[in-house]
Amino acid sequence: MGSPRMTLQTQLVLRALLEDPAKQRYGLELCELAGLPSGTIYPILARLEQVGWVDSTWEDPAVHEEAGRPRRRFYQITQDGAERARDALARAYQARKQPLPGWAARPASDGGVS
């Protein structure tokens, strides 16, 4: 199983999912958490699901029937996915710390190394 390309948007989605890894989130909720439009979220979620980082299930009938709306699709980060995502996010973060060739390194005051 491969890894998704860690674009900025993918990182945002992963961060949103990792905020509370035990919680199931639906698409629009993730849009808000990640601050991304709906169109961006779904391809990313589909990819994350393909590589096994994310699981998706339909909402429990009792809940959506009580609320009187169609069932939602819920996404949750898998245990393996959470580990690999944290790892990938950390690497992406480090990569951003590296100056691009020909560019000066960021001053230490800009975020610093924690």
Binding site: G2, P4, R5, P43, A46, R47, V51
Partner: peptide, 15 residues
């Protein structure tokens, strides 16, 4: 984009 994602699963390589 979604169509591409769904039609071409990655196999051990980056997309």
């Amino acid at each position: 984009r979604l169509t591409l994602t769904l039609r071409h699963p990655i196999r051990g390589r980056r997309w």
